[in-house]
Every structure is written in C-alpha cells, then in structure tokens.
C-alpha cells in the first residue's frame, strides 16, 4: 500500500515532466517559464522515490506530522509560480502599452502622409479633376476620412497652420464661447484676459526667458 502510492506519485511526476518537455519541444511553452515547472517536477520525483527524505527533513526542523511539510512546500512552490506568472503578465502589459502607442503614432503619421499626398495631387490636377489617385487608399482604409470633404482633407494636410480656415466658420455656426462652460468659467476667463494684456508678449518671449528654461 505504502509502496503503491509512491509508485503512483512517481508516475504522475514523470508524466508531468514529460508533458512539460513535450510542450517545450512543440514551442507551446517558452523555456523561461518552463524552467520553474521542470524544477518542481524534479523535486516531486525525488520525493516520491525517497519518501524518507521528507520524514528526515521534517524531524530536523521539528515538524511532527511530516505530510504538513509537504503541503507547506507545495504551497510555497505554487506561490512562486504564481508570482512568476504575474511578473510575466506585467512585462506583457508594458509591452502592449508601448506597442499600442507606437501603432497609434505610426497610424497617425500614415494618415498625415496620405492626406499630404492627396493634397499634393489635388494641387497639381486642380479640384475639378475629381478624386485624385492619391486619395484612393484613404477611401478604402478609413471611412472617417472618406466622409470629410475637400476642405477637410486640406486641413488635415496642414494641421499645424497657425490660423486654420475652419475656425471662422466654426465661430459663426458654433455657439458663443460663454455657453460652453457655464457661469463658472466666464468670470475667471474675463479676469485673465484683463490681466493678459500685460502678458501679451509672453508668447513671443525674449531670448533671456528661453535661457532660463534650459
């Protein structure tokens, strides 16, 4: 009976180790994560082959019921593996964040280049010649861009111009600026604009203020 359970547990740990090796071979498990598992299965095998080891160690550290040492060890091992997994997840999260950001930045760059290409071809062919060749990939790739008409695409091609032509139309059609933020903001904004007259040259600072900033 006693012998039986040890043989069974040895078989289980052997199968466990075999499964892990198989998974590594099939590249379903990365080596860096599998090492901990392999270590654990070796430990399991050792214990099932030499059960007296457990008794000896338990006696030495004054544990009277040897199996409780086994439970303790297994819980600690599982905890370590869980910690290892959480670390792996954290690394992955960080990578996903960086990748998503990079993807967003690249996509925006592509859209800008496409809009530029479109604007350039429009400039050479004239607006009357209809959708230019350069605009075609944009229409297939992005429905939002497709909706925007010619003045929009012109605007996106030069997003950094100081005074975009659109602002005027928005001011005319849009609501008065006071309506936006309710009674709270009107007062401070006026106060600030009154104070701003002395700060008018702020946006055009002298070279001395840029020195401060270095």
């Amino acid at each position: 009976m006693n012998l039986n359970i040890y043989i069974i547990s040895f078989c289980i740990s052997l199968a466990f180790a075999g499964t892990i090796l198989y998974l590594i071979r099939k590249r379903r498990l990365r080596e860096q994560y599998a090492l901990l598992w392999l270590l654990m299965s070796v430990f399991m095998m050792a214990l099932s082959l030499f059960p007296s080891l457990l008794d000896e160690v338990a006696q030495r550290i004054h544990i009277y019921y040897a199996p409780s040492l086994l439970y303790l060890l297994s819980v600690v091992a599982v905890l370590f593996i869980l910690l290892h997994l959480t670390m792996a997840v954290s690394t992955l999260t960080h990578r996903v964040i960086v990748l998503t950001q990079t993807l967003g930045l690249q996509e925006q760059r592509i859209q800008k280049l496409e809009a530029q290409a479109e604007g350039g071809s429009e400039g050479s062919m004239g607006l009357a010649s209809g959708p230019a060749f350069g605009s075609r990939p944009e229409q297939t790739s992005d429905p939002h861009v497709e909706q925007s008409s010619a003045p929009h695409s012109e605007q996106t091609s030069r997003p950094h111009s100081q005074q975009p032509p659109e602002v005027h139309s928005l001011q005319q059609t849009g609501m008065p600026s006071g309506e936006f933020s309710g009674p709270h903001s009107v007062e401070p904004c006026q106060r600030i604009s009154a104070a701003a007259s002395s700060e008018e040259q702020i946006i055009v600072p002298s070279s001395s203020s840029t020195e401060v900033n270095r």
């Binding site: 964040i97 967003g104 930045l105 929009h152 997003p159 602002v167």
Partner: peptide
C-alpha cells in the same frame, strides 16, 4: 470622428490603455 471634424489631430489607440498610457502617447 468628432475630434477630427473639430479640427484636431487625432491618434487612435487600438485598445484602451488608461489615462497614463494615453497621455504618454502624447508625450511621445
């Protein structure tokens, strides 16, 4: 769409990163 129509440059993030990840995109 609304931000684009209002005349802003827009960066679309594929998944929701939370405020920190979004702001960092801007800093990058």
């Amino acid at each position: 769409r609304i931000a684009r129509a209002s005349g802003a440059n827009v960066i679309d993030l594929t998944c929701n990163l939370g405020i920190g990840g979004a702001v960092q995109t801007g800093y990058r």
